[in-house]
Design a protein around this nucleic acid. Sequence first.
RNA 1: GCGGCGGUGGCGGAACGGUAGACGCGGGGCCCUCAAAAGGCCCUGUCCGAAAGGGUGUGUGGGUUCGAAUCCCACCCGCCGCACCA
Length: 833
Amino acid sequence: MAERRYDPHEIEPRWQELWARERTWEVSNESAGEELAELSARGALEQKSYVLEMLPYPSGEPHIGHLKTYSVGDAIAHYHRRMGRRVLHPMGYDSFGLPAENHAIKTGVHPRVSIAESIESFRRQFHSWGISIDWSRELATSDPSYYRWTQWIFLELFRAGLAYRKEAAVKWCPKDQTVLANEQVDAEGRCERCGCIVEVRQLEQWFLRITDYAERLLGDLDGIDWPEHVKTMQRNWIGRSEGAEVIFRCDELGIDYPVFTTRPDTLFGATFFVMAPEHPDVLRLASGTPNEQAVHDYVNRALNETNEERGNAERPKTGVPLGRTVVNPVNGEQLPMFVADYVLMEYGTGAIMAVPAHDERDYAFAKAFELPIRQVIAPRDGSEVELPYTGDGVIVSSHPEFDGMDNREALGAIVAWLDREGKGHASVNYKLRDWLISRQRYWGCPIPILYCERCGVVPVPAGQLPVELPDIEDYTPKGRSPLAAAEDWVNTTCPSCGGPARRETDTMDTFVDSSWYFLRYCDAHNDHAAWDPAALHEWMPVDQYIGGVEHAILHLMYARFFTKALADLGHLDFQEPFQSLFTQGMVTKDGAKMSKSRGNVVPPAAIVERVGADTARCYILFVGPPDQDADWSDEGVEGVHRFLGRLWRLSAETAGRAGGPSAGLEQPYAAGGEDLALLRKTHWAIDKVSGDLRRFAFNTAIAAVMELLNEVSRLRESASLEMMRFALGSAASLLFPFAPHVSADAYELLTGERVWEQHWPEADEALLEREVYELVCQVNGKVRDRVQASSGANAETLKELCRAAPNVRAHLDGRELVKEVVVPGKLVNLVVR
RNA sequence: GCGGCGGUGGCGGAACGGUAGACGCGGGGCCCUCAAAAGGCCCUGUCCGAAAGGGUGUGUGGGUUCGAAUCCCACCCGCCGCACCA
């Protein structure tokens, strides 16, 4: 017969059309209905699996990172399906947000229009990659049918007191003209998005009370199967510290100033007191003192500084005395007060007790201002130490009651004393801040709140949702939301008194939209509620979540917070949204991140065009462990393409020789020889790929199928046709999660059946064992020979075999045998002197 | 500074404490062909050797072990978080 060539451009669309036509990857919620009880009674209820990749932000076209994420997720989804589980594998778009809005400002094209185009492009490409998505549940966060429920959730949080409004110093991006969350400002004080230096402004803002959940967000990390480094990042971000709140009183003004400290054991070493420039009392304290003007100037300067300047711990300490004192509650000493920018308003109470002998920053400040330094902790061995000394030891020069005590014990004792005296108490502090969700932007979910002159802040009644985003002419931000210009929309009537009211014109941070989308997929078309609890009960939590590490903190923290808050409000019956998390590495080109400016972008569409989706997907998984960064190589792609071509050609050829497909894939009997060798190799591959899939080692899984194919190729002349068919069919079956089209095609050519309808193959333990194997013979740990040994041989026999091996004898010659180590099935090591 | 991850051929990467370098790329040789493309077969860490074989080899230096890329200690380098958090 004529030789046929592997043609992905013919094969791939053919299967994609079939899957689309038959809606192969759709799953219903039926088992949540009456059937459930019946099925479960019969024990016939299939186990569910919710496999989810982070939803894409639809901007332009998908990039290679998307290809990697969905290749990983699809492999897992397919594997779970073929292990007999009902798999939910949906897709949606995170379609609100700045890129579309900035594009609109530049081109005048409405974000709704440009987003629709991008979504279409993403959808088309996902189809062309053959990702097994349940398209019936597709959603976009900017669709009113979705954000209606984002608003509903906001109102639920509002009712529960978890959404609140307050004036706050906020990070403001002068270029994007919007408020940013703390998390969106980098260490240098630059806007995460545009890179310009962020300013500070005072504005009334909406916050979500995520800090109420700090303890649970921290504690519940222990129960979920996430990469350790992601958990660590979350723990650091929450930043829990145990210590005490201690009250320092300013007698002159009669005001108590609590401070948070992790080291109440050093209280007797406090020699001064420092407040953050943002502290609301700083100006009042200085007023009427000779330092009033100096304090005023210092505060002004500090507030105008960028985080970049202020955040630098290296620079010399600056500050100004306030001209007042506070009382140290443990010894009644008057401590001078200062304002200094090394104290942060956003942590603790915005004021600190300074213990220069035992804190590096306080030490630097004391040195710069020639303040007293009093050592109150000394090393246990009585040795002299250089100050500041931040280690543990014994209490000295403090109080007879505590002197000589271990400082860690004294810590508790001092807190207990403070508590008794009403001057302090044990306390826990977190770095985590409440989540600022207000954005002075157009393209976001409107906050469903009205301001009425008579009734004040009024939530929009649920029946009036969604508060739809009106069309406007000018998206340019001018320090307030562009929505403020839509007068017809802004001015409305108060639902409670009927009087005039104005709408909130800020929109929500897009992280709000993506904090609950995984819930909506479970019941994507529900018009009466955000979801039917039965649907969530059926699918949640997500069994396997997949995405980039860049979301390790924000998105994952927010989604966990939403889940817990909604559970507390009685809407969910689970505490964690993502049971298991996999974070995939970046795809680089020539070792560098792909970017337009570098000109090293490899668009997936171009690769698919050249070699097909199967090759692209397979290569990206083959190039290295998927959790690590991988460098794209055009030559490497060719290697995978050749491999897929070989699989297909050998399958077509074998099917041709057999006169067409036979029904199914029966394992033929192999008496011995090449047939048995090929059968064993096949079972080895089944075993290897199954194990590798469970541990996300897709690179070695694909390598194993390559090995199997190499073996098929080597034995093609000598093995029986039936064994060839079995080996190739198994190879196609094992490769299906990574390269679905060519695998489905090869499988059909060989068997006439649909590979995705077949249960995942199982390795036969008996065939994994070998009758004979190559025994490695070592002398003093060095390999000197290899001999054939039978699997049943006992230790004595193995030792004898080893001693008899020709090259071993040469190395044994005339030397004393001290020890013999036998590792059955592997090696014998003879130790000689 | 703190926390995490990593360092293996020319390259990407494999290796439950047990044959280091699977698989792929690149390179070399050969077959098929009038020629090419496509495909197929063989070799490929390094040094000595015609070969058999031997030495050497997983960032550096020690240690544990019959045996270490793997475990322990110290150090060097790289990447990623966090960072004046009291």
